[in-house]
Amino acid sequence: MRAECINSFYRATQDIFERMMDLKTEKAELGVVEEMIAGKEANVVIGMTGDLYGSVLYSFPKEMTLDMVKIMSGMEMDKLDSFVASALGEVANIISGNAVTYLSEHNYSCDIVPPQIIVGENKSISMATDKALKLTLRTSIGNFDINISVKEKK
């Protein structure tokens, strides 16, 4: 796993959270996990193709997701419905798109496939992947994880 990859996703997340939700993000933890598990209630999986291929899983707690959508919409949200899930999926999609742009600055040409949104805790996102890097980020409305499992095309 290349540092450029995790840094690109971190940089993109920081920028998008700040720009779209006025939220500061900071690294809380970084570690290796044996498999990608949707550890929180609202999850978005984004596939990556190209020089780096695999998948990225964003995992958010329910309350944090509702707060994020509330900040964007100015409306109260009380459940993880299609509207909330779709807004979250689009935020993750935007972050991933920007991360891919940053990766191109490091000469990695990659693409992303549209997000898949999974509501529900502790579902194993089995894609026969190897270990994943799990980055936990801290914000004022909660912590969330970005799991990255990509390989470099030989």
Partner: peptide
């Protein structure tokens, strides 16, 4: 469900576009 999905995506896209 489809209209709800569109609404969520539209909102996020608009904010990203105008704020970016």
């Amino acid at each position: 469900e489809l209209v709800q999905e569109f609404g969520g995506k539209l909102m996020a896209w608009l904010i990203y576009h105008v704020a970016g």
